[in-house]
């Protein structure tokens, strides 16, 4: 899932300073699961902003609503009226949600209420960890299913670096060394030969370095045309 965190309240207050009618727009998918921007969090944020604006002597009209998925336009259309009525929409969806609103409602001013952090999973109650950096050419098959792009602080393909010690990464004792994990897993499965080969330089053009990415599936486009 996409993991995000709410921005500090003061930053959001700054973003909405000029507006009077504010809509906090939650999303029912990833950010609900990571407790950052679901129905409940959107409601709490709306209340906080309302109270804060009162304390500041300029009470704002702050409402909130949540759609099932902000990153698909159809779901946004269901709340089109509320979006259009607001001076400003504080999207507490991920960065994709924010932009989906922007693209669907060009006339509306939209600001983010979250910092979208990474793609990951919850590892224990209240803890989320990054697992994939969407590099565009997955090498998990060579690394025992543990991603060195997202999980090694230096994105090494022929790791581990010299700073790996006692299982943790040189940058933090809280962070497992991805290459220690890869080594342990491949060793336990008798597959260390997978990492004795030199991994050639990565083709970063498939990653964000190649510019914004786009996937076109002709089969689906044709199918859509046929059904029209």
């Amino acid at each position: 899932m996409i993991v995000a965190e709410q921005k500090p309240l003061d930053e959001i207050k700054g973003l909405i300073a000029e507006a009077e009618k504010v809509l906090v727009l939650g999303c029912g998918t990833c950010v609900t699961v990571c407790f950052a921007g679901g129905e409940k969090e959107a409601g709490i944020l709306a209340t906080s902003l309302r109270m804060a604006s009162k304390i500041d002597g300029q009470p704002k009209d702050v409402t909130h609503t949540t759609v099932q998925r902000q990153c698909e336009w159809e779901y946004l259309d269901a709340v089109a009226d509320q979006i259009r009525e607001a001076d400003i929409v504080v999207s507490v969806g991920c960065g994709i949600g924010v932009q989906a609103v922007v693209e669907r409602f060009p006339e509306v001013w939209v600001v983010p209420g979250l910092n979208t952090s990474f793609m990951g999973l919850p590892t224990e109650q209240g803890v989320w960890e990054e697992r994939c950096a969407a590099c565009g050419s997955c090498i998990l098959g060579l690394t025992g299913g543990i991603c060195p792009i997202a999980r090694c602080a230096k994105q090494l393909l022929n790791g581990p670096c010299g700073g790996s010690q006692n299982g943790v990464c040189e940058i933090s004792k809280e962070l497992p060394c991805a290459w220690q994990l890869i080594y342990d897993r491949l060793k336990s499965q008798n597959r260390l030969h997978l990492i004795t080969q030199i991994q050639p330089p990565k083709d970063w053009s498939k990653s964000r370095d190649g510019g914004p990415r786009r996937i076109t599936r002709e089969d689906l486009r044709l199918a859509a045309e046929a059904s029209e």
């Binding site: 790791g159 581990p160 670096c161 700073g163 790996s164 010690q165």
Partner: peptide, 18 residues
């Protein structure tokens, strides 16, 4: 460079080999 004392210790010679 090689760090003989980095972990995993048993893997270091192989990393050097690479």
């Amino acid at each position: 460079a090689a760090n003989p004392f980095g972990d995993p210790f048993e893997w270091r010679p192989y990393r050097l080999g690479k």
